[in-house]
């Protein structure tokens, strides 16, 4: 495999993990515009642990993911009680606060960025992405996953059947935070350098858009969306500036024509039938 292909695949693996981080709250109708902020928490805390405290890479990255998840729980608790669109606003603010703090935090290099010593190649990162996908498959088939979909479509009725809506959403948001932290930790230890500017609201927005583009109804949607977003510039090589234009136009178009995203649950069931017949 050429270095170029490996680089693309690594990026794809990280983007897929980040997509699942955004997918869990999205499946319950909650927009998390702070995914990049949670990635930054995971990236910086794991980098500090492996750089300054000589933690092994798996331990450091896992700890970074836990930090991000803990923070997600702390923020999500009060905000999710209010419901509605407030989570989008709160996570957006969170993202900017995190970025603002990191840029001013001289211990980790401030605006100049922070070099990460330990290095991870494609194989462990791809393994993590596969693990996250399996976890998503598991959760998607669980009662939690079912309740999330139910909340997304009809919060009121779901609550009348005894589902604790804020708690369920908090669980999804927290697990999402852990996954974002993992994606951030992997990112830092692959590129060997992190800076606050990278983890912008724009990154959070593109993650959310790619998940919605792929479709939130099935476990496959986020992976499809992440692949679309990551591979788009490769398809339109030489027109890199057009990448976001095409991506955004695709999102608007798909939302206008079929707001459920590229792959729906009904599509998946049809696909299964075809495969079974063949």
């Amino acid at each position: 495999m050429s270095g170029y292909t490996a680089a693309i695949l690594t990026l794809l693996a990280i983007n897929i993990i980040a997509a699942y981080a955004a997918w869990l709250p999205l499946a319950a109708g909650q927009v998390n515009l702070g995914t990049a902020g949670f990635m930054a928490i995971g990236a910086y805390s794991s980098a500090v642990l492996s750089n300054e405290f000589d933690w092994s890479l798996p331990m450091a990255i896992a700890a970074g993911a836990v930090c991000a998840g803990g923070l997600a729980m702390a923020i999500g608790g009060p905000v999710l009680r209010t419901r509605g669109l407030y989570l989008a606003l709160a996570t957006l603010a969170f993202n900017e606060v995190v970025r603002g703090i990191l840029i001013n935090l001289d211990v980790v290099g401030g605006a100049a960025g922070y070099p990460v010593i330990g290095h991870l190649g494609l194989a462990p990162i791809a393994a993590c992405a596969a693990g996250v996908f399996l976890l998503a498959l598991w959760l998607g088939a669980s009662r939690l996953g079912m309740n999330l979909h139910a909340i997304e479509q009809d919060e009121t009725v779901t609550a009348l059947f005894g589902v604790h809506v804020p708690f369920t959403q908090l669980a999804a948001f927290t697990i999402g935070g852990v996954l974002a932290g993992l994606a951030g930790g992997l990112y830092g230890h692959h590129f060997s350098f992190i800076e606050g500017q990278h983890f912008s609201v724009l990154l959070s927005v593109t993650i959310v858009l790619s998940v919605v583009l792929g479709g939130t109804q099935t476990v496959w949607g986020p992976a499809i969306g992440a692949a679309f977003f990551t591979l788009l510039p490769e398809i339109f090589r030489g027109a890199a500036a057009w990448r976001y234009v095409l991506f955004a136009a695709a999102v608007i178009l798909v939302m206008a024509i079929r707001p459920q995203g590229l792959l729906t649950r009904a599509d998946l069931m049809r696909l299964r039938r075809v495969v079974r017949l063949a």
Partner: peptide
């Protein structure tokens, strides 16, 4: 429909307009 979809589309427009100007 759910308020999520127009929000997402408007984010799409944000990126579209900014990048058209950028191009």
């Amino acid at each position: 429909g759910p308020p999520l979809i127009p929000l997402v589309s408007s984010l799409g427009f944000l990126i579209l307009f900014e990048n058209l100007v950028l191009v």
